[in-house]
Design a protein around this nucleic acid. Structure first.
Length: 469
RNA sequence: GCCCUGAUGGUGUAGUGGCCUAUCAUGAAGCCCUGUCGAGGCUUCGACCCGGGUUCAAAUCCCGGUCGGGGCGCCA
């Protein structure tokens, strides 16, 4: 749950539930108002127990018919689950529950002896999906009812973790001098070629949704912003249907001047190390919530294992050998596919970089050194991937800053340099060598939370069959 | 786009031609009891994805559709 110890009172409450839960001893006898969802409503006689939940905790509200007017008592007692309530009353220590012989007495808990209450909003019944029900719910139904699904403690915890990951990542990059930018998501032409873009009309001009901030973050660096990062959406009109692809996803991108591929791999591994360390230090309680649910479903709990630095580097040529020795069919120049990654992951189960891919497999903006060739003589590039297990997290590299080479690369890949003048012109007036990467935020979250599907860690995922809610 | 697989109350499931006016859990409505606390007890409610076909008989078999799940390709 969220730490609300510093939160201010609002129009609807004097205290958060979390404040009372953690500070109850000092509040005993004090009159407070809290607001929350009625998780359970028990009792049909002259007393009632409401388990109230807000974003900071749970607390029991105890109602005695004698302590308030009849209408209020009846209204609250007959409230449906998940209705929102505001209650006023005195903080009291809860009577300890009956415990079995020999069981330890639980620590003191607090409750609110209600004197006044107000139903803010009644929940319709039945709920489309249960919040605390002990029934597994399919992902599709959950996503249709995401507004309720997120109320579930472990789902809520996963999104808090997501926010933390972004926060720690952002903090870290700022500490290395990166500044946050925002690039346009409506663009006139393909940023990279290759993947399909979503077309749209920009007034009377055909345009597209951006597939990547790639070219724009480079222009920012060419423009002298030195080190930049962006956390923003990317759109790809690919009809893929897997646990790790979405048609709209949040990409965590950086680009830095006077850097090569090895330099930005360093930035990346330090950033990931920082994120993992901070999560381990500050947010284990969120992981615990996720694990409580996982265990109840018969799944293995996840552990936050801070990765060691540096991450292993497995150059493409070595990776090909590993796959071949592991019985995989692959030739130099072919893509390392998922089943190949399984073979590599058997040796390198955690984070590992795959640098020095063949230039023929990399986009036109990736840098290559003519002197660097692979085991079969093919031209190598300064492009790299970061994988975790079998999954690709990142694609990055040193960028081509020589405009004549850039234009030749475009022609080699069947693209027309004239269509990219908005980009290539940026290189005509002095260009620093530079490098960068793009990281899939949801894929990183999958590792941390043990989610088996990126949709779990995206609030309102957009895939080939889903545009609502 | 390809391969495999599935669709039963609000939710999750059992059910492979007649034993099914369909199982269990959860839920909802109500009653009883109760300072409860995973509360408990009782009663009631609520479902075979859509369309066509085979058959004396279809939740069950066949065809088409829609939607879902798994894998692949592509990528982050």
């Amino acid at each position: 749950m969220r730490d609300s110890s510093e939160w201010h009172p609002t129009a609807f409450r004097t205290h958060t539930i979390g404040q009372i839960v953690s500070n109850g001893a000092e509040l005993i006898g004090e009159q407070v108002s809290v607001a929350g969802y009625a998780e359970t409503v028990r009792g049909r006689g002259a007393i009632a127990f409401i388990m109230l939940r807000d974003g900071t905790g749970h607390i029991q509200a105890f109602l005695k018919k004698d302590n308030m007017d009849d209408d209020t008592f009846i209204a609250v007692q007959s409230a449906s689950r998940e209705s929102t309530l505001q209650v006023t009353g005195n903080v009291a220590q809860k009577r300890p529950p009956k415990v079995a012989e020999g069981e330890p007495t639980p620590p003191p808990e607090y409750e609110i002896n209600v004197t006044g209450a107000n139903i803010l909003s009644s929940a319709e019944t039945p709920l489309p999906v249960g919040i605390i029900d002990d029934v597994n719910v399919g992902l599709d139904i959950r996503l249709d009812n995401r507004h309720l699904d997120v109320r579930r403690t472990h789902v809520n915890a996963m999104f808090q973790l997501r926010s933390r990951v972004l926060q720690y990542g952002r903090d870290y990059l700022i500490s290395e001098g990166f500044q946050e930018i925002n690039s346009p998501k409506i663009i006139a032409s393909a940023s990279e070629g290759g993947t399909n873009l979503f077309p749209m009309m920009y007034f009377d001009t055909p345009a597209f949704l951006s597939q990547s901030p790639q070219l724009y973050k480079q222009l920012a660096v060419l423009g002298g912003l030195e080190r930049v990062f962006e956390i923003g959406p990317a759109f790809r009109a690919e009809k893929h249907d897997t646990y790790r692809h979405l048609n709209e996803f949040i990409s965590f991108d950086i680009e830095g001047a006077w850097m090569n591929d090895e330099d930005v791999m360093g930035v990346q591994e330090r950033m990931i190390h920082h994120i993992w360390s901070e999560i381990a230090d500050n947010d284990q309680h969120l992981i615990d919530v996720v694990n409580e649910y996982r265990v109840s479903q018969g799944q293995e709990p996840v552990t936050v294992e801070v990765p060691e630095l540096p991450f292993p580097r497995i150059p493409y040529c070595d990776a090909i050998e590993i796959v071949q020795k592991g019985g995989g069919e692959i030739e130099w120049g072919e893509d390392i596919e998922s089943h190949h990654c399984d073979i590599i992951a058997a040796q390198y189960p955690g984070f590992h970089f795959l640098p020095r891919w063949p230039m023929s497999m990399k986009p036109f903006y990736i840098f290559h050194d003519e002197d660097e060739t692979g085991s079969t003589g093919g031209q190598l590039s300064r492009g790299f991937d970061l994988n975790y297990g079998r999954d690709e997290m990142t694609s990055g590299g040193q960028r081509e800053h020589r405009v004549d080479v850039l234009e030749q690369n475009l022609r080699n890949m069947g693209l027309e340099p004239a269509d990219f003048t908005f980009y290539t012109d940026g290189f005509r007036y002095g260009a620093p060598p530079h490098a960068g990467w793009g990281l899939g935020v949801a894929r990183l979250l999958m590792i941390l939370t043990g989610a088996g599907n990126v949709r779990e860690v995206v609030l309102f995922p957009r895939d080939r069959n889903r545009v609502t809610p």
